[in-house]
Amino acid sequence: MATVVPRHAISRQDLPDREPSLSEHTRQLLDRIHKAPFALENAMSTALVDAYERAAEDPTATWLESWESWVAAMQCGAAVFAAATTTEPSVQCLIHHEMRTVPAFANPESFVDAGHWTTTFYLAIICRNAERITALCNVPTEKLRESGAVYDEFNYAWIEALKSFWLGRPDFAERLVEAARGTDIGATSVVAQDHLSQIVWPPMDLLRWRATGEHEEFNRSLGEALGAHKAYWTADQGRADSCYGWVALAPLAMACLAHDADFPIDVESEYLPKHLLEGTWAGEFPT
């Protein structure tokens, strides 16, 4: 019998229509990326908001427009790291059905950081784009430190664990243990404890069970991860109204990895849009 984790009630009324898939603001930002690096990061952020907010009206990601929003956010994120690591004057990147010229970043940009890398990695998993996942794995972790953004060390250990898992490196377990230790109480100076226990730790536990092939433990952990996600995003009204809580991005990405490895997923929730989890739209158009 499936475990069902209901999504918390959404009270906001200012939600996007089904069409177009991207807001006008996101489209305007995409028209500027050839000359303004920050426009690319902003386009990623607004496309991701488009995707999250559309999930309120389309919780299973049945609409093609929902898929386009998730893909566009992933493409913008991937373009950020392509522009940050290229040795050429510019890179050609497919973003929202168009090949676009993105100039190489001349200097370290504040948004070429661990947070954007991790989000883009999750999105690439959800969008089933193995080429982009591998390209992200080839971004040196030191490049993320150059951004100047302040992150605890466990974030970098988690990134190395994700890379090692995807690339099949022998140090995966060591990296995962290092990341998990960094979530212990008192081990961090940047992240609040409720965020650590309810948002940061669960995907690490999920990846452990995915790597070891433990189907039952994975499903148990997935149910707990969604419960923790719900608890975090309903702690106050401000969080409950934030679209970032309407989809559990990291647990969804780990569940996609499990689904694609033929794990039976016995947890159902609007926090895990059905057609994203099952990869229904993968292959509908080039991503």
Results as ranks from 00 to 15, higher is better:
F81M: 10
R181I: 11
G168F: 05
S269Q: 03
P37R: 10
S269P: 00
G115P: 04
K274D: 11
D194K: 04
D58A: 01
A79F: 06
A82H: 09
A228G: 05
R175F: 08
A253C: 09
D14T: 04
A83C: 08
T120W: 03
M254L: 15
S66K: 02
V200C: 13
V91S: 04
W233C: 04
E174S: 14
E153K: 10
E268Q: 12
R128M: 08
R169P: 00
T62W: 05
E19F: 09
L30M: 06
F111N: 08
I133Y: 03
D241R: 07
F111K: 09
V71I: 10
G186P: 09
M44C: 09
H275C: 07
H229R: 05
G238T: 10
L207H: 02
F154M: 08
L123F: 03
Q198T: 10
C93A: 15
Q92K: 13
A231G: 06
V177R: 14
N138E: 13
C243I: 11
L277K: 05
D260R: 13
S23G: 11
S197Q: 15
C256P: 09
E109T: 15
Y271W: 04
S21N: 05
H97G: 07
N138F: 10
T87G: 15
A235I: 10
N155K: 15
I95W: 00
M254W: 09
A149I: 04
R128Y: 09
W281D: 00
T134E: 13
P170V: 08
G168C: 06
R210H: 12
W209H: 13
I10P: 00
V102P: 00
D241V: 02
A56R: 03
K163D: 10
E98A: 11
C256N: 12
M44L: 14
D171W: 11
D266C: 14
